[in-house]
């Protein structure tokens, strides 16, 4: 099985989403669970939610309702956005019961 990335693959827009040379496993089986995490969806964002730590009541509603599992619990119990994966849908902003989340346009 070829393990080297061909020139065409290197130039392909899709293969850029996958770091390192493409390995063609037998039967296209993927043996690395959760490997989509190599692909950062954070650059999809138009809007950027920001959690104001002082206002956060640690209810976890933002965490529970994120379709991208892009909100993490911090060591002090408050929640923080993982900007590597946050796509900026703003469900969290909409649902925060104490308005601890605000948003602005993503600066690129």
């Amino acid at each position: 099985m070829k393990k080297q990335k061909t020139k065409e693959q290197a130039q392909s827009g899709i293969s850029k989403t996958c770091p390192g040379p493409m390995v063609f496993s037998k039967g296209a089986v993927i043996s690395e669970p959760g490997s989509t995490m190599k692909y950062k969806t954070g650059n999809w964002r138009t809007y950027k939610p920001v959690i104001e730590r002082a206002k956060c009541i640690k209810c976890g509603i933002c965490w529970a309702n994120c379709p991208d599992a892009a909100i993490k619990k911090d060591s002090d119990g408050t929640f923080i956005v993982d900007y590597d994966y946050c796509k900026g849908c703003l469900i969290c902003d909409k649902l925060c019961p104490v308005k601890a989340i605000s948003h602005g346009v993503e600066q690129k």
Binding site: G34, T36, I61, W63, D68, K73, K87, C89
Partner: peptide
């Protein structure tokens, strides 16, 4: 976390639309 399993079995980085 608030009654839900903390571990994720459907990882971030999937290509579903925002929201």
């Amino acid at each position: 976390i608030i009654g839900f399993e903390e571990k994720e079995f459907f990882a971030s980085g999937h290509r579903a639309c925002a929201g």
